[in-house]
Nucleic acid binder design. Sequence first.
RNA 1: GCCCGAGUAGUUCAGCGGAUAGAAUGCGUCCCUCCUAAGGACGAGGUCGUAGGUUCAAAUCCUACCUCGGGCGCCA
Length: 565
Amino acid sequence: MKEQIIKLLKQALKEKDVELKEEEIEKFLEIPPALEMGDYAFPCFFLAEKLKQEPRQIALEVREKIGTSPLDFEDIQTKGAYINFFVDKKELARQVIKDILKQKETFGKRKKTNKKIMIEFSQANTHKAFHVGHIRGTSLGESLSRVLEFCGDKVIRANYQGDTGMHVAKWIWCYEKYHKKEKLKNDESWIASIYVDAVKKLSKHKTLQKEVNVINQKLFTGEDKQLNSLWEKTRKFSLDSFEKIYKELNTHFDVYFFEGEMEKKGVEIADELLKKKIAKLSEGATIIDLKKYNLGVWVLLRKDKTVLYSAKDVVLAKKKLEEYKTDRNIYVIGAAQSLHIAQLFKTLELMKLPKAKNCEFVPVSEVRLPTGKMSSRTGDNILYSDFIKEITEHTKKEIKKREPKISKAELDKRALKISMAAIKYSMLKQGPNKNIIFKKENALNFQGDTGPYLLYSYARASSILKKSKLKNKQFQIFNLKPKEFELIKKLSQFPEVVLNSYKNLNPSVIANYSYQLAQIFNEFYHACPVINSQQESFRLALMEAFRQILKNSLSLLGIDVLEKM
RNA sequence: GCCCGAGUAGUUCAGCGGAUAGAAUGCGUCCCUCCUAAGGACGAGGUCGUAGGUUCAAAUCCUACCUCGGGCGCCA
């Protein structure tokens, strides 16, 4: 329909001596704010200067040139400087529903691009808490991966886990010095608490850092067998618990990189950069001076020659570009690391690595508590494990209220899915570069703009479809109520929404769309009874189409639907 | 001090150059003998941080300022 409008406009404008490309017309074309203004609108303001005419006059004349409304339109009107197109509603309805029911989960999917994209996300550090904030980056990465795949790219999901570095040295030091009597426990909150204790003790007595530096060096050289084995054991505890979390979050990785693997090469690369005069020595440390790019100074090696995150990241980036031969490298990382990322990208450019320009950064802002920053260092946070327990228990209570006799297996399954929908949706509905204020009472509220509301809408449609005795898939449309048409229009917009999300690397547009879609659906079934109505066959088909699109869009968010709530 | 974000209803957010600024939540009222009330309907609630500028048109673009968050050499 849109293509046809563009064609009509192009022809009519040509008759007025205005040559516009189809893309240009498409850019101006908009969807009016209200239904009574039509389905598409073309504003004529911008032509005023060129044609030296009043915009409303131009609109009238262009409308004139289009001539009598072609078949697929009910009407084409002008209102002020706008030309408003009213599509043939029944025809649009038939087409949209037919396409969706035929293409199912591929509706809106785009052609293969042959592009290989590596997307790095989650990057949890061992020996530290995995808190609610980490769910954001993880959900975002997973969702973006799905959007990229849906739009035809080949995606490699990468996780880069911080299993070495100063934070690990601090943990080991603190355990050795103050907690050695405690048995090693594979328990997230215990592991997190040791780290918090380390930070606390170190900030109280600044001189203790020297002891940590010694441990850091020993871990770096690997000379101390006892420390090595302590590191290996505790490292595995963290990694195992992360795997459990990823499984619950229904995300997976194609490659795992570890900071530990980058250390030796980090030193080599720092030396190499020194030789190439990209880096230099300053106060004993190896640095890159990026001041002339307004990026400050980047330290690669400490003065004791141990390697920093910066150098390790250069090693990894090189590996991505050279070994994996990726077309795009996407870094989904905390916005607080913007400077680090800018320094990394600039360094890759200075190193003249081919395709260095193909690195992109998706900054992820914080999940904050109402009282302030959530931090693994201070312990001011909500642990993933604690929160997930609380939210699933809350969900179970809610389910039992509605279905007291539910089996335990079904209860567990449903509670987990609803909880996941709640938390993932709350993380994705906001743009990535905006802080989220995490309030627990809001997280446990399942009304309104929430994941459970979306699942409820889906389950509701499923239940009505199940109850209907009509099995014939054929349908006829006698007349269309406004709510039905609104729903159909919304369904037809799904492909553009996905494309928008893809172009901007932003799943929140899909989240917002899903919510609006569910909202219109809820209004629709309150206004239009389905079972035993004159329009039963059509409304069933419409519901089926709705179910499909909601499922498709939630799936792009990494959220699973439920047949029953 | 410099750099990067963000300022829209009591609160949390959408809208990011176009026609009357939208939701949710909270508050008030109504709807379960009728497809699951995790729902729907109605109402109150806004000088879109401030001041200039660009434009036929600014919440949206530019500049300055204000407020909040983040970052700025040996943490990641």
